[in-house]
């Protein structure tokens, strides 16, 4: 649905994109994750026909973005990184104008506008100028405007930056609904590892204008050393026997007190096997937990520096 191959974008001497490629399947949420200045917004600008790549090709919904920008514009919705509502116009007027630009007419436009105002909880504020909105409300209006024409492909550039945790959670719920109900293809950029993990079914980690890793969030984490499992036993006396059993299934087995720790490639499949083995040996278990490696670990591995460090350098 979205395809970019070898995108290069130079702003004078700055090489914002350095051969970026990605491929997004229809109906999925794809996350572009990366620190400040990685080239996420530049990628979105090229894919949404705003900016032109210095070299490389990009297709959205099968259409070449440089050859058929007008056709691409009809099928995409775009929520830029910067808030883009007209502050002098009311929420409703903003939506009406946006709809009119896509050719929506009176009755259809009104229905759709009402629907989106309700959906984003903006009905009460619909008739006052959007300059009086809070940051979170403006961001919701931004997203609503991007959706007005039922785009097949939606681009969201940092949709939740600047939102408080509550507003962010609400936005996540909305976006999850969208992907599921409207079968939309969504490309979303974010700084938040948690957001990428939660919303995206596939991720690309971008660093210095290149994709350094792609995969599902789980794939990316699985490529690390695996999950950490922790088993608390009911009785310390069984520890040596349990360790021996565990060593056959897992690696890096350690123990302290009543707890055993080990690494497995996939916690979800390993746990039943571990429990079955302990059970058949008659070792009572108090609790079991699995810790997945975080995307931060993934980022550290592929970008060669931790996420927080990269942010610090670029900022």
């Amino acid at each position: 649905m979205i395809n970019a191959a070898g995108l290069v974008k130079e702003y004078g001497k700055v090489r914002a994109l350095d051969g970026l490629s990605l491929d997004v399947e229809p109906g999925t949420v794809f996350g572009l994750l990366g620190p400040n200045g990685a080239g996420k917004s530049t990628t979105v600008k090229i894919l949404t026909t705003l900016s032109r790549a210095t070299s490389g090709t990009a297709h959205v919904a099968g259409l070449d973005v440089t050859k058929f920008p007008d056709k691409v514009r009809r099928v995409i919705g775009c929520v830029p990184q910067q808030t883009s509502v007209d502050p002098a116009a009311t929420g409703r007027e903003n939506l009406n104008l946006q709809g009119a630009l896509y050719g929506l007419r009176r009755a259809a436009l009104k229905t759709r506008t009402d629907q989106l105002l309700t959906r984003f909880g903006l009905t009460d504020a619909a008739n006052r100028p959007s300059r009086t909105y809070s940051g979170g409300m403006q961001r919701k209006l931004d997203v609503a405007m991007g959706l007005i024409h039922h785009p097949r492909v939606l681009f969201l550039d940092e949709p939740t930056t600047g939102l408080d945790p509550e507003a962010r959670a609400e936005m996540w719920t909305e976006l999850t609904h969208l992907a599921a109900e409207e079968r939309m293809t969504i490309l979303l950029t974010t700084h938040y590892l948690e957001e990428a993990d939660k919303l995206a079914s596939r991720l690309a980690i971008v660093d210095r204008g290149k994709v350094v890793a792609t995969g599902t969030p789980d794939d990316l984490k699985n490529e690390l050393h695996g999950d950490a499992i922790t088993i608390d036993l009911a009785d310390t006396a069984t520890i040596p026997q349990a360790r021996a059993l565990l060593a056959r299934i897992a690696t890096e087995v350690t123990s302290s007190g009543r707890s055993l720790r080990a690494r497995v490639s996939d916690g979800a499949t390993a746990i039943p096997a571990v429990l079955a083995a302990l059970d058949s040996a008659g070792i009572p278990v108090a609790s079991v937990s699995v810790a997945r490696p975080s995307l931060d670990d993934v980022y550290l591995r592929y970008a060669g520096r931790s996420f927080a460090d990269a942010e610090g350098v670029a900022a």
Binding site: R74, G103, R105, A108, T111, H149, H150
Partner: peptide, 28 residues
């Protein structure tokens, strides 16, 4: 109407009378 529009596919969104000149006038 509301049911119809929420399932409307992008291809069926009316494009301001279909003509570029009409779109120019409406947009303006």
């Amino acid at each position: 109407m509301s049911g119809a529009i929420s399932t409307m596919s992008p291809e069926t969104v009316p494009v301001a009378g279909g003509s570029a000149r009409w779109a120019l006038a409406t947009h303006s």
